[in-house]
Design a binder for these strands. Structure first.
Lengths: 217, 217
DNA sequence: AAGTGGTCTAGACCACACC
DNA sequence: GTGTGGTCTAGACCACTTC
């Protein structure tokens, strides 16, 4: 890292092979390997077999954002968390949802509309669809006590998903729920979650004005 | 991973020690260690010396967002990139910047205001402050040809920084520059970059309406 | 064909946290 | 004190890719 920072090894340069570095630093090759791997993971090096290791030409900065359960997020800001389940109903997927998640039009979905609060102030408004063929057990859960968010986290620990972050002007309904002016800029997180190629849930979270998502590189 | 997914090992459960798993799977402890490390890094396990390894109770999802050079970002969407340097001037730090970055009030800053374009359409509006004591060489760079963004990436490869993402209503000036209605919800990324405890640059990027930042978990 | 990184092994010692 | 994970070593074999 020092040599890259001091430009002893410049972007694009080929750096010595693992064995040579191991000799220079007086350690085992496995140790050099771990160090270089770690630098490659953070985007500073490009490594290829036979071709060797080069200082990255276009260091793609990788920032890791942590997406906690909303309750934890609120509590980490030293606020009291609560939520209101505004509405829930079972329904069939819209044409859009059918296409987006490959659902049949006869699939059973559970729709939930929730307001998350921080010290009684609106914190985020959540619209959620849950695929009941994937997690039928959730119908038996008491979602007034434990939020669907947490129920799912606790009951489907292994999943992959996609996030999209964007900004959107508050609709009339959203402004009323979040207690903000109509048209206020809201930070929006869309998330879909899958377990073994089966869609489980799709969520849109609209955060009250003032929210920021932070991370370090 | 299968055992966590199938709930053989449930959230909160203590799982066997590395040596036991090594025996069970017929491999070396180092191999088990790497596997468990990797699961812990992605938030599925909590590990503590002496206390052992547990399935995470509150799996904090960690999403990695890649922050490329804006030119790459535009080009990856199959658009032609260009930018206009709208304004540049040298100035002293405002009181806010002095406090935020520990600068003396006599420090020299370079301020740059840039519009990034995607196929001639406004893509993002950038306000940037550069600490000239950290990178005086940038005064000799031709920032009309190569954006400050890229110059800095190419000339200060080792840095750490902080990101904050939020949403903001477009001001009159921003609406004119980004060619959008006043008050439109803009996705905003604030970034500060440091090299060895010295602030190098602070940027605010306001993306034109419609921008989304995507990632997977 | 040959050189590079990718990965594993068996063994060792250590640091830490819990008892 | 003691058991756990954290880390290192020396050696080995393999996979890939460039020459």
């Amino acid at each position: 890292m020092r040599r890259i920072g001091d430009r002893v090894w410049q972007p694009g340069d080929l750096i010595p092979a693992e064995i040579e570095l191991a000799e220079e630093f007086g350690c085992a090759r496995a140790t050099v390997n771990r160090a270089l791997q770690s630098l490659a993971d953070s985007g500073l090096l490009d490594r290829r077999r036979k071709a060797g290791t080069r200082v990255a030409l276009n260091p793609v900065r990788k920032a890791t954002v942590e997406i906690p359960v909303i309750r934890k997020d609120v509590e980490s800001r030293s606020k009291a968390y609560s939520f209101d389940l505004l509405d829930r109903k079972q329904l069939s997927p819209s044409v859009l949802l059918q296409k987006q998640y490959g659902l049949s039009k006869s699939a059973h979905l559970l729709g939930l509309w929730t307001l998350h609060r921080s010290d009684t102030m609106p914190f985020a408004y959540e619209e959620r669809w849950i695929n009941l063929s994937a997690v039928p057990e959730i119908l038996e859960a008491d979602l007034e006590t434990l939020s669907a968010n947490e129920w799912l986290v606790n009951n489907t620990p292994l999943s992959h998903g996609e996030f999209a972050f964007s900004a959107r002007n508050a609709s009339i309904a959203e402004s009323r729920i979040l207690n903000c002016p109509q048209g206020a800029a809201l930070f929006v997180a869309d998330r879909s979650t899958w377990v073994a190629d089966q869609p489980v849930t799709a969520v849109r979270l609209a955060y009250a004005p003032g929210f920021t998502m932070n991370t370090t590189v």
